[in-house]
Amino acid sequence: MDQFFTLSEESFFKKERDKARKLRSSQWWKRKRSLGICHYCKNNFLPKELTMDHIIPLARGGKSEKFNVVPCCKECNTKKNQLLPWEWEEYMAFIKQ
């Protein structure tokens, strides 16, 4: 299913993606990622293998702010997709059964 966004929504996403790019180049993000720990699965990775995940996804109203981004592995980032934190926790509990 294709998603269609209004011009104002497109400008919001562009602005937030630009802010995320700036955050990724900041010392704050480099230090956070340098720990090498995925926020979700808690496994260790090389820092360059971690991606930036929006805890509350942009498509669900989140922002590219320090309190809303965490380092995570590509597998968790792909699985989490656009889930909210409580939806992700339910998903993780379901697959551990």
Results as ranks from 00 to 15, higher is better:
M1R: 13
G62Y: 01
S8G: 07
M92Y: 15
E49L: 13
Y40N: 07
S34I: 07
Q27C: 00
G36V: 08
R60D: 11
L46C: 11
S8R: 08
V69D: 02
L83C: 11
C72D: 05
T6Q: 11
W88Q: 10
C73K: 03
L83K: 15
K63F: 00
I95A: 05
A93H: 11
A59C: 13
C41L: 05
S64C: 03
L58D: 08
H54W: 01
A20C: 03
R33G: 01
C76L: 14
K48V: 10
F67H: 07
L7S: 13
L84V: 02
M52N: 02
L50A: 08
E9Q: 10
Q97A: 09
W28S: 04
R21Y: 04
T51P: 14
P57L: 09
D53Q: 03
L7C: 10
Q82V: 05
F4G: 07
H39E: 12
K96R: 14
Y40E: 04
T51M: 14
F94L: 14
I55R: 06
M92S: 14
S64G: 00
I37S: 12
G62I: 04
T78C: 02
K66D: 03
C73W: 03
N68H: 06
F4Y: 06
D53F: 00
L50R: 08
D18N: 06
C76E: 12
G36D: 06
M92R: 15
M52F: 02
E10Q: 15
F67M: 05
Q82T: 06
D18F: 07
R31E: 09
S26T: 01
C76F: 13
Q27Y: 01
P57G: 08
K79A: 12
F12N: 06
D53P: 05
G61W: 05
K63Q: 01
K63A: 01
S25Q: 14
I37A: 12
N81A: 09
Q27P: 00
S8M: 04
A93Y: 11
T78H: 05
C72S: 09
E65Q: 12
K48W: 04
V70D: 00
K80D: 02
K14A: 13
R17Q: 14
G62M: 04
N81W: 09
P47V: 06
T6Y: 09
S26L: 00
L83M: 15
C73V: 02
W29K: 04
L84A: 03
F94T: 13
T6L: 11
T6W: 09
L50M: 04
N77F: 04
K96L: 11
K79Y: 07
E9H: 07
M1P: 13
F5P: 03
I95D: 07
D2Q: 11
E89A: 15
C41D: 02
K74Y: 07
I56A: 12
E49R: 12
E65F: 06
G36C: 06
L50T: 08
C72T: 03
L46H: 12
S11N: 13
